[in-house]
Simulated assay, not measured.
Amino acid sequence: FNVEQIEGLPAHFYAVTAPRLDPVQRIARADAFFAATGAQIVHGGGEACYIQRTDLIHMPCIDVFRDAESYYATLAHEVTH
C-alpha cells in the first residue's frame, strides 16, 4: 500500500522531503541535444518512463535528482528505449 492510502500511521511515515536549498542547474547543451531528438517530454510525477500508447516520455522534475548528470542520464535512458 501507498502511505497516503493508510490512515492512523505514526507521523514519521508521513514525513515530507525537505526542499532543496540549491536547485539543480540545467545544462544548456544537453537540453539542446534532447530537444533536437524531437522526443515529447512531460515533467511531473515521481517516475521516469516512456508511454508507448501516447509516445511521451514522462520525467520527474530536474530538482528531484541529486544532480543534473543524473537527470540527463535518466532522460537518455528513456529516449533510447
Rank of each mutant, 00 (worst) to 15 (best):
V64M: 13
V64L: 15
T54P: 04
I6W: 03
L9D: 09
D63Y: 07
C61I: 14
Y14R: 02
S70I: 04
M59V: 10
F13Q: 08
P60Q: 12
F65Y: 15
D67I: 07
A48D: 01
I6G: 05
T54Q: 14
D67F: 03
A18Y: 11
A68V: 06
A68E: 07
L56V: 14
Y71A: 00
C49S: 14
A28S: 04
R53A: 14
R20P: 06
E47M: 10
V42A: 02
H43Y: 13
M59T: 05
F34L: 10
D63H: 11
G45R: 06
V64F: 12
D67Y: 01
P19W: 07
C61F: 13
R53W: 00
L75C: 02
G46N: 14
H43M: 06
F1V: 09
H77T: 07
R26P: 00
A11W: 12
G45V: 05
I27D: 12
H58E: 13
H12F: 15
Q5S: 08
L21S: 02
Q52L: 02
P23M: 09
G45A: 02
D63W: 09
V24L: 11
F1C: 07
L9A: 04
V3W: 03
D31A: 04
Q40P: 01
A11G: 04
R26S: 11
Q5D: 12
H43W: 07
L56S: 00
Q52F: 03
D67C: 15
A11T: 15
D55P: 09
T17I: 14
G45T: 03
D22V: 15
H12G: 05
T80K: 05
A73Q: 14
T80E: 02
H77R: 13
R20H: 00
P23W: 00
T80I: 06
Q40I: 05
F65R: 13
E7H: 08
L9Q: 03
A36G: 10
G8Y: 08
L75Y: 09
V24T: 06
E4C: 01
I62S: 07
I41Y: 00
Q5E: 09
D67H: 10
Y14M: 08
F33R: 06
R53C: 00
H43K: 04
P10C: 02
F34W: 02
I62Q: 10
I27H: 04
L56D: 04
A30G: 07
C49F: 14
E4G: 06
Y72K: 13
P19K: 08
Y14T: 03
H58K: 13
Q5K: 09
A18H: 11
R29C: 04
L56M: 14
P10R: 10
